[in-house]
Computed example of a mutant assay.
Amino acid sequence: MGTAIRVHAHGGPEVLTVEDVPTPLPTAGEIRVRHTAIGVNFIDTYFRTGLYKPPALPFIPGNEGAGIVEALGEGVTGLRVGERVAYVGTLGSYGAERVLPAQSVVRIPDGIDDDTAAAMMLKGMTAQYLLRRTFAAKPGDTILFHAAAGGVGLILCQWAKHLGCTVIGTVGSQDKAELARENGCDHVILYREEDFAARVKEITGGAGCAVVYDGIGKATFPASLDCLRPFGTFVSFGNASGPVPPFDLALLSQKGSLFATRPTLFTHIAKREDLEAIASDLFEVVRSGVVRIPVHARAKLADAADVHRALEGRETTGATVLHP
């Protein structure tokens, strides 16, 4: 038996209940991991509310964690009991222990602690696939990232600056503006006080951005399209304010023959070789100091409801990690 957070019915943070649940033995191809740190992500709130549908109710939320391999199922090779591993994958990380496919975990390299690993698998690999695979930003590109002081934003903006991009970020407060500047943003827009599309035009001298990375959704659409240069790319990767409403594809032609895409990390890491490549790229920029992973809050697993309230209230910056 081990402590876990379960959701029996969709709703607000109060539906996150603390329970003792049995931990099954790993079957063929699986491992059991004892968590040392659990990553918290905005996607966790989507599953809790029902915006994203879990396979069934009740369920244990959470897609990211780090810990120690405790047991190996039949046929598992390349891993040993006692090794440190991290993962992003199927639901079930909000617990002291879990069983998951061995193919979904990667070893944590020396020089990266467990809290950092747990905080960066989903957010860091999301930054990698957005910046290096979805729209491969290059020196001289001007990019716009919404919620630049959030978990993905702080990582991606540092990385983009290192690549030689001009980085514009939107934030909701002066404190977050300062944090964004410290983490790679050349220009910061306070979206509650300014028309961000007008400010982008001003900053770029009317040229627009090569790409907009938008995890906000409904509240920033279609204005995000007005921030793009002709043939620019709109990358919608989240729904923090609600999903982007259906729109006529003709809108993309009217605003400059734009490209639009809605990628997910899970498509990018579906193949083991891609998972390893993305994780390796991320680990390298973190170990080299190019990207710092800001863990700004730590909480007990039992306090997950309070953590969700803070997340949805836009009170958080960087990453939050839960400890069993």
Rank of each mutant, 00 (worst) to 15 (best):
A4P: 13
P245L: 09
F59Y: 07
T90Q: 15
H162P: 02
S93W: 13
R32C: 11
T220F: 10
S173C: 09
I189V: 03
T166I: 06
S280P: 01
E83C: 08
L156E: 10
A71M: 11
Q103Y: 03
A148K: 00
G318H: 04
Q128G: 02
G111H: 09
A305D: 08
E70T: 11
C157P: 04
K138H: 13
L301F: 05
D186N: 14
T170M: 10
A277S: 14
L25W: 09
I216K: 02
F196P: 00
A260D: 01
P58E: 02
R229H: 08
P22L: 13
L322H: 07
V76M: 14
V105E: 06
C185E: 12
Y52F: 14
G62T: 11
I43S: 14
T23R: 06
K53T: 07
R48F: 05
R34K: 15
F283C: 07
D114P: 07
K218G: 04
A148L: 03
V7M: 06
L57V: 10
L57G: 11
P139A: 11
A304W: 03
R287W: 04
E83P: 13
H308R: 05
E276W: 01
R6N: 02
M125D: 00
P246G: 15
A210C: 05
E64F: 09
E194Y: 06
T36W: 02
G124S: 10
E70A: 13
I155V: 11
L130D: 06
V88K: 12
N41I: 13
Y46P: 01
K123A: 14
C227P: 10
L251G: 07
Y94C: 12
T320V: 14
I43M: 14
T3K: 11
L275K: 01
V285W: 01
G82A: 12
T316Y: 01
F145V: 14
C165Y: 03
F47Y: 15
L275E: 05
S236V: 12
C165R: 00
P109R: 04
T261H: 06
G169R: 02
L57Q: 07
I60E: 12
I31N: 03
I168T: 08
Y94G: 11
F234T: 02
Y191P: 07
Q158A: 10
E312R: 00
G318L: 04
E19M: 06
L79H: 03
V295A: 10
P22A: 15
T142N: 02
T166V: 08
H8D: 03
A223R: 07
Y213E: 03
